[in-house]
């Protein structure tokens, strides 16, 4: 019985600790991930996702200010995945665009070569 009491109180204390501490580190991490996403062009490539991340970060800050730390932490976690998605989507779109441009340049190059060959054949 005494052991059970100890365990319960321990559990209570740890849970209490988790909720009494503002998730400042988490908020900073989200902030920096959002900035990274912005740097790779999220505003153009993933506008919905980046907006969602910013909105949730603002919510998380508000909750944290109201000392609702547990909810603030969860919201920050969700903001984090939004920001990560925005970043990854931007990088992916940009890379795919680069592929398309490269393929196009190869196509143009091949066309030019063919034209030159045709000209040469016509000349001789």
């Amino acid at each position: 019985m005494r052991q059970l009491l100890l365990l319960t109180s321990f559990l209570f204390i740890t849970t209490a600790c988790a909720s009494t501490k503002p998730p400042n580190d988490k908020l900073t991490q989200v902030e920096s991930t959002i900035q990274q996403a912005e740097q790779v062009g999220a505003e153009n490539y993933a506008p919905l996702e980046i907006r969602e991340a910013r909105k949730k970060l603002a919510e998380a800050r508000e909750l944290s200010a109201k000392e609702n730390y547990e909810k603030a932490k969860r919201t920050a976690d969700r903001a984090m995945v939004d920001a990560e998605l925005a970043q990854m989507k931007s990088l992916s779109e940009k890379a795919q665009k680069a592929v398309r441009q490269l393929r196009e340049s190869i196509r143009v190059l091949q066309e030019e070569i063919q034209n030159n060959l045709d000209k040469t054949e016509n000349r001789s």
């Binding site: 995945v81 890379a95 592929v99």
Partner: peptide, 27 residues
Amino acid sequence: YIAHQKTKIARETAQLNAAQDEVERAE
């Protein structure tokens, strides 16, 4: 929600990696 977003991240990551491979090949 986290699972859903992570799934989307996985999809984008895969596409990014595939595109990077493609860039190398195309180059």
